[in-house]
Design a protein around this nucleic acid. Sequence first.
DNA 1: ATGGTAGGGGGCCTA
Length: 258
Amino acid sequence: MKLATFNINGVKARAEVLGRWLDTSAPDVAVLQEIKSVDEAFPRALIEDRGYHLETHGQKGFNGVAILSKLPLHDVTRGLPGDESDEQARYIEADIGETGLRVCGLYLPNGNPAPGPKYDYKLSWMERLRARAAALIAREIPVAFAGDYNVIPQPEDAARPDAWREDALFLPQSRAAFRRLETMGLYDALRLRHPEPGLYSFWDYQAGARPKNDGIRIDHWLLSPKAADRLTDCWIETAPRDWEKPSDHTPVWVELAA
DNA sequence: ATGGTAGGGGGCCTA
């Protein structure tokens, strides 16, 4: 079973890219971030006409996540538990068919400028994610947390780490919170298979970042022990970043044994 | 040190 995470940066602006990607790469499951659409305006036919089940958690203007799957989606949860006052649409969970796998799609807050209230929100959101992960890991089921974490875990995850030293994506507290997810028993799938530097999932639209390969790795799959046991491969699909009218992110994949 | 690009919504915010 092949699963991908893809920050598409606007589902309506990305209809052509998304359709082409589903047709050619054919994920069994995909989580999408930054759909930037309310649920009623989501172009469902784009997904459903290709044989996918679809669950969305959108809001007006920005943020918004979705999960699509060839197998039916069960027990869908919208919103990250832990703060009833949080109205930002950044999190969705669902069980995949009868596989026993639970997939969590997340769009972690950017956090800039730091310090400030946006950075405080990022760190508190990461603490809520840690608590949610602990609750799901305690069930001893395979769980996969995938999405745009807006965290550069290590210097080798950026072409120019020094340019990010003061950025919320690379500040020590952000990296420590990400490491905390790993030390509690979640595995960074890409690093289980690929220790080499220079693997990126995001290139800014500005300043020719893509042709210069001035990228960062911020889209991740974190796997619970039982999900990591099923991992057979993990890779970054760079081609869609070079298609016409691309997202600034590109898909990151895992293959899990059924 | 600045500005460079993109999407969405509506005359600016977020990234």
